[in-house]
Amino acid sequence: MFTEAQPFYCPMAQTIADGSSKFIPPNGGMGSCTRARRWDDLSALDPDFVLADAVLEITTAVDRELLAATAVDLGRRLFGAAAAGFFLFDGGGTCPQVVHAKGAAAGFVEEYEHSLRRVDPVLRLVRRSGRAASARCAIAPVDWGTAAIAGHLKRWGFGDSMQGPLHGGGGRIVGTLNVVRHRDDRPFGVGDLAAFERVCRALSHALDVDVRLASAASDCALANPGGPLMRLEGRARDVGWLVLDGATNKVIARQLGISEPTAKEHVERLRARFGAVNRTQLAACLAQHLVRPAESG
């Protein structure tokens, strides 16, 4: 059962839980530096700004390790967490393997793995519901004092914890993002859970893109076994960079000052040149080529 929402105390995202309606009106008479400071102040207070910034950080993580490190850093900054960890399940989908963690001693993780993971009510609730949950959500207040997971957190100097699901293809849960607060800090509130859920959704999307690009790159390598990377020059290279950035034909046309049909023709020529069956596979092939031009002969 959800506990009563607590005011969010993290200075960076104070209004995520308290619903503050503070607004700094524009003022054309202010100097540019003052306007920039006021804009930064507004960004730090507005939950939509905070979460949008978090999503932008997630989308710029170009591989799984960087994504994990970004997620852990966001977990600590956005939610005032003392420690955070990014976990992916093993091939059998049962045992979470840590990809990146910060703030917790090795003994804390080892104790959890050996004696608590299989009976962790928070992880059980996350996997059953497919939604983020906190320890205070999963354990009734009357049972908190005697709960094994609560005792584990307290022994290592921690208080409340949150876990959020990381979804893969088909909606299955492939891992979790975990955050814990210091023992003397406030429990996570409903607002924290809602924001945490949105961060986990962005992470899930980024993971799915990572998997699809890796698969497409593998398909591209199979289609061109042992072949040298091809050199792209001039307009083909310009179009290639834009495809790699995710630009549509319309955006490519606008950026390069050409017609949309011409942009489409350039993309189709690239696709045929690399033997890619779709745009996603083409982007994966271009990533291998464009970021490593020295190997292109």
Rank of each mutant, 00 (worst) to 15 (best):
D245R: 09
L256G: 04
L56R: 07
P165F: 13
A284L: 05
Q6M: 15
I252W: 00
L256M: 04
Q163C: 15
L290I: 03
L177Q: 01
E57K: 15
A52R: 02
S129A: 06
P187K: 00
G234D: 15
C95N: 14
D185Q: 04
L290D: 05
G226D: 07
V209I: 14
T15N: 15
K154P: 02
H167G: 08
L193N: 10
L42D: 07
V55L: 15
E113V: 14
R127P: 08
F23Q: 12
G75A: 07
R155V: 07
D48M: 05
A133T: 06
A104C: 09
E295F: 12
A284I: 13
P47E: 07
A44Q: 13
R136F: 04
F8S: 10
V243N: 03
Q6F: 14
F188Y: 14
A68M: 06
R273L: 11
S129D: 02
R77L: 05
D53V: 04
F49K: 05
D245K: 10
L74W: 04
V291P: 06
F8C: 07
A52C: 08
S20K: 09
L42I: 03
E265G: 13
A263I: 06
V243D: 03
A71I: 10
A147L: 04
F2I: 02
Q281T: 09
V119K: 14
Q255H: 13
R124S: 13
D184H: 05
L116F: 08
F108R: 03
F89C: 07
F86W: 11
T3I: 09
R76C: 10
A101P: 01
G145W: 04
L67D: 00
L42W: 08
T70S: 12
V109D: 11
P187D: 10
A194Q: 11
E260N: 14
G164I: 00
A202E: 04
V243W: 08
R118Q: 14
V99H: 03
G80Q: 12
D210F: 15
G28V: 14
R269C: 11
G85H: 07
A214G: 09
L286G: 01
R77P: 08
R127S: 07
R237C: 13
R118C: 10
A236P: 15
F79Y: 05
A147Q: 02
